[in-house]
């Protein structure tokens, strides 16, 4: 947690719930951000890392700008997600699945790839919904708004070197 910018502000939380109230997906979360902070204080590590809340975060930053204590809540959510992946603790593999699939594409090609992303993610996690989404993908193709093949950047070797080094340094930090 200490690596999160502004994380040390968590002990300023007054449990007002402006985060949980502001969250567009707050109604779907098992614990609201406020409750997560209370659980963090209570050392309930597993309950925190198993929560679906960070994965339902849409990065809209409402909680961050509205927090009366200026806690960087969205950034804390990112940290919780990476901690959950490292600890292997999440109740639904589909949630980190999207992030990981996305990261895979970025690490292979340097760009994201919508068609691959959507199909691979859905194949693995929601095979039944794939057929339902097909018209959308087809529509995108028809309108020239989607590629059939991913584009690989030229500096892939450079990017890989940078990312590998960053991950090595990140490992060292934690």
């Amino acid at each position: 947690m200490s690596a999160t910018p502004g994380d040390n502000r968590l002990n300023l939380c007054i449990q007002c719930g402006s985060c949980g109230g502001s969250c567009p997906s707050g109604a779907e979360m098992d614990h609201t951000p406020r409750r997560l902070f209370a659980l963090i204080r209570a050392d309930a590590r597993e309950a925190v890392l198993r929560s679906n809340a960070p994965w339902y975060c849409v990065s809209c930053y409402y909680c961050t700008v509205r927090c009366p204590q200026e806690i960087h809540i969205t950034d804390v959510m990112y940290t919780l997600k990476s901690m959950a992946i490292k600890a292997g603790l999440f109740h639904d593999a589909a949630l980190p699945g999207f992030s990981e699939t996305f990261v895979d594409y970025v690490e292979k090609y340097g760009r994201s790839f919508e068609l691959g992303l959507a199909t691979r993610f859905n194949l693995r996690h929601h095979p039944l919904s794939l057929a339902g989404m097909a018209p959308l993908g087809l529509g995108m193709l028809k309108r020239g708004r989607m590629d059939l093949t991913p584009h690989r950047i030229d500096g892939m070797a450079q990017l890989t070197a940078i990312l590998d080094k960053a991950k090595a340094l990140e490992g060292g930090l934690q």
């Binding site: 402006s18 985060c19 502001s22 969250c23 109604a27 614990h31 609201t32 409750r35």
Partner: peptide
């Protein structure tokens, strides 16, 4: 009025 009812733990 959108709010988290912090005692009920729900939006």
């Amino acid at each position: 009025i959108q709010v988290e009812d912090t005692l009920a733990g729900m939006q």
